[in-house]
């Protein structure tokens, strides 16, 4: 198991979306009371957290709070509530169309490319190092049929594709990669990172291990300090995925950042996962990937190819949810009678 997949292409488990009923309720109310037929894109926030159970992955979740407030007095309040450890906030954009036809007519490739370009620019401007959540920027297109209370939607999690793909040298449970002493220190430091309100929702970080087997966790911007004191340096991220031999989606743009900004060819990464809210190193993975920096990446000119439209049960189709049961006034009246 330890060396499984070595030398093969590093494959990432796609992000999965999950939309809370409250999101659609607020979108409907905004559409009716505020936006009207204005279909300009709306900045929204998604939330995610590291995998916290050995058998299920975490999702990029949209809640009512993902949208701006729909009440008028509330408009003075900040639209987005700061995340907590179970809700790391990720910026996204919503294109809500007025008709089914315009929903289908959206230029999906173009929209995905536009979001990928923002990520690409944030990587090169250094914004992604300061505010790493922008690496997981996402896109949502929707058509809200308010007459039937049905919502058609499709998520994309843009990932900059390395060409050629990164190959895997080694991937194993973190508990097997670290020595016992190191593992203990890594767990303790990660738990502390997750418990502090300052860092709990910072999904990308650096783990370095000194010669005394003690781990230190730092922000991405402190890479130089890590390289000085660390014998072992790992690029770590909150991994929403639970699979034992695949890292989750956020690692893709993280690798793009690492190879284009720091010009590394071999990258050791830590897929940080939890069990019941605490660091679990047998569930977490440590891997080593080889990257060939693609042509033109250092010049930052052309935006790399991007992928990331979410599949619906394996098919390239949008999802649909009907909320007539909780939105249709006639049905509500009947059930209330």
């Amino acid at each position: 198991m330890a060396k499984e997949g070595s030398g093969s292409i590093l494959q990432f488990a796609p992000f999965q979306s999950s939309v809370d009923e409250g999101f659609w309720h607020r979108l409907s109310s905004l559409k009716l009371n505020k936006f009207g037929i204005d279909d300009s894109p709306i900045p929204i926030s998604g939330f995610y957290a590291p995998c916290s159970h050995p058998q299920v992955s975490n999702h990029l979740t949209l809640l009512a709070e993902s949208l701006p407030s729909d009440s008028n007095e509330g408009s003075a309040m900040p639209a987005i509530i700061r995340g907590n450890r179970n809700r790391c906030s990720v910026p996204g954009i919503l294109y809500n169309t007025n008709t089914m036809e315009s929903f289908h007519a959206l230029d999906k490739q173009g929209l995905l490319k536009a979001e990928a370009k923002k990520i690409w620019e944030d990587i090169h401007s250094g914004k992604a190092v300061e505010d790493c959540a922008v690496l997981s920027r996402f896109l949502l297109i929707s058509f809200a049929d308010l007459k039937k209370w049905s919502f058609h939607y499709w998520f994309a999690f843009p990932a900059l594709a390395l060409d050629p793909s990164a190959t895997l040298v080694d991937l194993r449970p973190a508990s097997q990669w670290f020595t016992l002493e190191e593992a203990e220190s890594v767990s303790a430091e990660c738990n502390e990172w997750r418990n502090s309100s300052e860092t709990a929702d910072v999904p990308f970080f650096l783990v370095s291990i000194g010669s005394d087997s003690r781990a230190t966790i730092r922000h991405l911007k402190d890479l130089e300090a890590c390289q000085l004191d660390g014998q072992k340096l790992l690029f770590a991220f909150y991994d929403p995925c639970h699979l034992p031999i695949n890292p989750g989606w956020p690692l893709r743009n993280f690798l793009a950042l690492i190879c284009s900004r720091w010009n590394l060819k071999t990258v050791r990464f830590l897929c940080y996962r939890e069990n019941r809210g605490f660091a679990d190193l047998s569930l977490s993975l440590v891997g080593e990937a080889l990257i060939t920096v693609p042509q033109g990446w250092r010049e930052h000119q052309s935006v790399p190819n991007a992928v990331g439209w979410e599949l619906n049960k394996g098919r390239k189709i949008p999802r649909c949810i009907n909320l007539a049961k909780s939105m249709d006034p006639t049905r509500l009246a009947i059930s209330a009678a």
């Binding site: 292409i9 590093l10 594709a161 793909s165 990164a166 995925c241 699979l243 893709r252 394996g314 390239k316």
Partner: peptide, 16 residues
């Protein structure tokens, strides 16, 4: 959509 969303990418894990 055959047109719009063709994504062939070796680094995407299929069927998760």
């Amino acid at each position: 959509e055959a047109d719009n969303v063709i994504e062939t990418d070796a680094a995407t894990l299929q069927s998760t």
